[in-house]
Amino acid sequence: MELVFLLICGGVAVIASLLVIFARSTLHSALWMVLSFFMIAVVYVLLQAQFLAMLQVIVYAGAIMMFIIYAIMMLNLRQESRQKTGARISKIIGVGSLIVLFLELMLVSLGNNLTPIPGPVSEKLVATYGRMAVISNFLFSDYLLPFEVVSILLTAGVVGAVVLAKRER
């Protein structure tokens, strides 16, 4: 059952990501991107990371894609989409080396039998307290400093965006 869901959702995610690249219109790319993010959220659920799946839908498919679609609507991109992309030697070399990297990664990660190291979050701990409580416990103890740093970074990012986009009078 899990395998069937994984194959369907993973396949749709890969196809949607390919369509992001190949779509002619930027807005269509953004909409395929939303589909891809939803499918990745399903993959997170299959990996027992339900919290992350919710964050994926709310933050990525909700907030970030909203940002991007607003930006596309504010810019007039119609004339760019006509231009033909010239195949230049640097692009060919780049894509070729990426294909080599792809094959290498596939061989390394699929060929070997990876043995796990059991970490601190056992099945018993999750069954006793629930996954969410365990996650929040770790987030507000071991990961408190990165959490605060990220909150400062987000505030700085929002202020920076407003300052950059403001029209000078």
Partner: peptide, 26 residues
């Protein structure tokens, strides 16, 4: 690996990506 480190890494990557989206689109 029965660990939560990867999940936290993804959470922080999401936060940084949100900040990056705001500044980048500006």
């Amino acid at each position: 690996n029965h660990s939560l480190d990867g999940i936290f890494m993804v959470i922080f990557v999401m936060a940084v990506a949100a900040a990056e989206a705001a500044v980048g689109l500006a």
